[in-house]
Amino acid sequence: MMRDVTSILPLSLESISFRGEGRKLVDAVSLVVPAGGVTVLLGPNGAGKSLMLRLCHGLLTPSEGRVRWAASATGRAKRHAMVFQKPIMLRRSVEANIDHALAAAGVARMERRERAQAALGRFGLSERATQPARLLSGGEQQRLAIARAWSLRPELLFLDEPTSQLDPAATRQIEELLTGLVAEGITVLMSTHDLGQAKRLADRVLFLHRGRLIEDSLAEYFFAEPQTMEASAFLAGDLIW
């Protein structure tokens, strides 16, 4: 595997804000994501979790502040990839979905086939290779989305509520996969509103409230003794605004 010596990580957000609907949806967030581990963005609906991921991945441009990578992380081979809440499946076969992403990243045809096969094998989708992607079950679709992202060989993988539409069995499967990815050395930054999932996966928790980052701590500390009222209320299951 030819990987550049210089890593794109750590990723630094320098006081980024994002305006929309006449207000600040993300408000002056600064943080650093170093290599390794699972960082979970936690917070109630509308806290700005999804926006944060999109800003980091480059789908959105911050209104203020900047997103800084340690090495070039734009263009075709940007070495970070994203998996969305609702898996976006192209109207093609399972394998063609992976092939398409690799082609978009500028991978040569011969290598594409190899890497697609590897991804299918790695995520247990080999038998489904020629089936239409959109006819897979929800869990399989999300698995394919992760396989597709994985085939791009990202250093950092963004996942936006990857299991919110899945049943518990499929959820567990995805969580196991993610643990495996981390073991491989891939850094994960994901959002969830599922506290159990956060507890199971997170090494570090970023708690967002109304677009502001109000807590940034190691998972064990966050769940043991949250520092803010909002986080305490959230952990207690109270509705907070």
């Binding site: 991945h57 789908l59 263009g75 075709r76 940007k78 990839a81 994203m82 969305f84 976006i88 192209l90 109207r91 093609r92 398409h100 992403a101 978009a104 990243a105 791009l152």
Partner: peptide, 23 residues
């Protein structure tokens, strides 16, 4: 429907057209 994914893999603007026409 595809926007997020296509932009994620770097197919922005006119580069997205072949995929969209094919699909």
């Amino acid at each position: 429907e595809y926007r997020d994914h296509l932009r994620s893999v770097g197919l922005e603007g006119m580069r997205a057209i072949p995929t969209l026409l094919f699909d």
